[in-house]
Write a protein that binds this DNA or RNA. Structure first.
Lengths: 251, 251
DNA sequence: CAGTGGTCTAGACCACCCC
DNA sequence: GGGTGGTCTAGACCACTGA
C-alpha cells in the first residue's frame, strides 16, 4: 500500500479506492492481518473518512475484509463453502450434524408461512430454531416450520433442544418425495444478527427450502447465511473458486 | 406515511427508518409507484439526507425499492424467480433459451479459470458471453469458459453470436456426467454493471457452475445475477415466498 | 482508559433524465 | 433547465473492545 495519492480518474473515488485496496490486499497483506485504522487510511489516500468507508464496505461485502467495532479491520479468510443442497434428498437433521437444534415452539405462524405450507392460517405449527456452525463460527440461523399435522405422534418432550430434536425425529418417519430451494439476498434482522454475530442489516443469503411428501408440504425451512463469509454449494461443488473475490471474469 | 417524526428509540435511526418505510410500503404504496424525493423524505422524517439514504439502501438491497438516477425511487415488484438448477442436468444452451449468446473469444484464460478447469495455464479457452433476460429485463450476465480441447470439432463460424452458438453446439456433443454449482455474494464490475443496467458495485449473486464429463471438467460457467431483482431457484421452487422482503421468520 | 469502527449531520457539487 | 439520485466533504458524537 505504498501509494499515497490517488491519480485523478473519471471513476468514483470510492470505487477506485476499492480497486487500489483490493490489489494491496492481494499483494501486501495476509489473512488475519490488521489494516491501519480508518482515519489513518483516509488521510493516507487524501479522502474523507466516509469515502474510505464506502470502499471498505464494498470489500467487506465481497468477503475480503472483516470489520469489528472496537477492534479494527482485518483481512478475511476465503469464504467457506457450505453445502446447502446435495444430490440425495434428505430431511433436515438426518445424516447431517452441521446443524444444531436450539429449541422449538408451537404457535400459529405468520400468514406467509401458513400459505407456503398450504395449511390453514390458524393451524398450529412447530417452529424449530437451529444454528449452523462451520470452522467454529456461526454461519447460519434457521427457522424450520413443521405443521403439527406433519408430526402427529409427537410426545411431550421437555422444552428446549430436546423438544426440537423430538420434532425432527418425528419428521423423519415421513417419506420425503421432493425438495425445492431458492436463494435470495436479504438483510439480517435484530435477532438473526445477534445469532450470526453481526450488526442488524448485515447482508445475508436467505435459503428457503420446501420439503414435500406425496401428500403436500411437510416442512418449510428458512435459513439465513452470513453473506460475507459463506459460499453456498449445490451438488457437492466443494472447491470451485474462480473469481477474485468479486463477480469475475476474464480480467 | 402519515407520521412525520420518529420517536426516540435505542436503535440506529436509519434502521428504525427502514422499518417505518417498509411498513409504509406495505400499506400505502403499490408496485411502480414513485416515492417523494430524498430531500423531501429526509425533511419529513427530520433526518439528514445521508441517514435517509442509508435506510433506502437497505430497502433496495432487500428488493423493495428501485432507484434510478435522474428519475426517482419507485416501489419494486416482487423478485422474479429464476431457475438456476433443475433436477435434470443439462448442458448450457440446450433446452433452455432464457440465455442469449452474445459472442465468443478464444484466449488464454486467467489463472483461476484454468485452475478450475484443470487445464494448463496457457491452454486456449473459448469464452462465451451470454445474457439472460426475464420479463424484459436483463437479470444475469455469464462468462462460459470452454477449453478448446472440449470442442475439437469447432469449425470456422463467423465471429459474434454465431460463433458463440457454434461453441455451444459442439459442447452438446459431449456426454454430461455431473454438474455442481455454488452461489455467493459479489459486486458488479464496470462491464457487468453496464450489462445489468446497474451502477458499478451493485450487489450480485455469483453462480459458479462446473460441468463435468467422465474425463474431467468440460466447461465452467460464471454467471452474475442482479441480487436486487432475482431469487434463484433450485429444483423448480417456482413460487416459495415466505419472508417479508427480509430474512424472515415468525414475527 | 484510549482506540476502534458505527452513526449522524449539513452542507456542496456532479451525472443523469426528461421536458 | 429543473429535478432526480450519486458522490464527497469535514466535522461530531456514540458504542464497543481490550489493556
Amino acid at each position: 500500500m505504498g501509494t499515497t495519492q490517488l491519480e485523478p480518474v473519471q471513476e468514483p473515488k470510492y470505487w477506485h479506492l476499492r480497486t487500489v485496496l483490493s490489489e494491496a490486499l492481494d499483494s501486501e497483506f495476509s489473512v488475519g492481518e490488521i489494516l491501519p485504522n480508518e482515519r489513518d487510511l483516509a488521510a493516507r489516500f487524501g479522502v474523507a473518512r466516509a469515502t474510505l468507508r464506502q470502499a471498505l464496505e464494498q470489500l467487506e461485502l465481497e468477503g475480503r475484509l472483516q470489520r469489528r467495532r472496537g477492534v479494527g479491520t482485518t483481512v478475511a479468510p476465503p469464504r467457506v463453502g457450505v453445502a446447502v443442497g446435495t444430490r440425495e434428498q434428505v430431511w433436515p437433521g438426518m445424516a447431517d450434524d452441521s446443524w444444531q437444534p436450539l429449541d422449538s415452539t408451537l404457535v400459529t405462524p405468520p400468514a406467509a408461512v401458513a400459505d407456503a405450507l398450504g395449511t390453514d392460517r390458524d393451524a398450529p405449527v412447530h417452529t424449530v430454531r437451529r444454528s449452523r456452525v462451520s470452522h467454529g463460527q456461526p454461519v447460519a440461523a434457521e427457522l424450520l416450520h413443521v405443521p403439527q399435522a406433519s408430526v402427529p405422534g409427537l410426545g411431550d418432550a421437555p422444552a428446549g433442544a430436546a423438544r426440537a430434536r423430538a420434532v425432527l425425529r418425528e419428521l423423519h418417519r415421513l417419506e420425503l418425495a421432493h425438495q425445492e430451494s431458492s436463494v435470495e439476498l436479504g438483510s439480517a434482522r435484530a435477532e438473526e444478527a445477534r445469532e450470526l454475530d453481526r450488526l442488524p442489516g448485515a447482508p445475508v443469503l436467505v435459503v428457503t427450502t420446501r420439503y414435500l411428501t406425496e401428500t403436500g408440504t411437510a416442512a418449510l425451512s428458512v435459513a439465513t447465511y452470513r453473506a460475507d463469509t459463506c459460499r453456498l454449494t449445490f451438488g457437492d461443488a466443494g472447491d470451485v473458486r474462480v473469481h477474485d473475490g468479486v463477480a469475475s471474469g476474464v480480467g
